[in-house]
Amino acid sequence: MATILIAEDDADIRDLVVFKLEQSGHTVIPVGDGRSALRMAHEQDPDIVLLDVMMPGMSGIDVCRELRRDAQTAELPIILLTARAQESDVENGLTAGADDYIVKPFSPRVLAERVQSVLTRTRA
């Protein structure tokens, strides 16, 4: 089981993701913005990070780029959550170093499986 950091400004989605991942046995650290995500990534040393692309202040892509620049977090697996209309951001996200992305609307079951898949792949 893993420690998962989720940065999502939409409380409904954040709560749902936390519920789903905790149900799968993971420990989840929820935050509502990019700066908090950066801080918690350093303080809590998570196994994987889920970042919403569109967040106020600092976008998920900016956070991803910052995490990759820092030696302490450079190897962290990162999954981006992006709205359907922002699919063009996916290319930017992957260029910034994200390992995978999930398009909203998403199935909570598929999200849990994708998280598990990235964890398995990066731990191998």
Partner: peptide, 10 residues
């Protein structure tokens, strides 16, 4: 709000 943001069984 969730209705517009989830798919599948949810």
């Amino acid at each position: 709000s969730l209705l517009g943001k989830v798919s599948g069984h949810a």
